[in-house]
Amino acid sequence: MIIIDILSWICLILGSILCIIGGLGLLRLPDFYSRLHGGGITDSLGAGLILIGLMFQSGLTMVTVKLAMILIVLFITSPTSTHALGKAALISGLKPVVTDEHID
């Protein structure tokens, strides 16, 4: 039982740290397409780790089934909306920022 608690704590803390890193990336990165990357981290890995940590806490009950349904729906819809957002920005003519100093 203590092993499951420790696994759940590790998943929850790691997911929270990844969410904060993604939020900092959303705030600090220079242009829209790189901010899209920062937002995508928190939608897939941060949310997944937090929901898996909660699943470890609840055991084999109906709560776990609902959490798994939330996880599956989130894993399908979140990359779809991110892709639609990037494609809409590209169609509308938003140019990515390209600097010359990193091109060899």
């Binding site: 937002g39 929901l51 989130l74 991110t82 920005a89 938003l94």
Partner: peptide, 18 residues
């Protein structure tokens, strides 16, 4: 741009679920 705001609101919604 407006797409930054839409991205932020989308991420805010995901965090509301969590």
């Amino acid at each position: 741009t407006v797409y930054d705001r839409i991205l932020s609101v989308n991420m805010f919604g995901t965090k509301t679920v969590l």
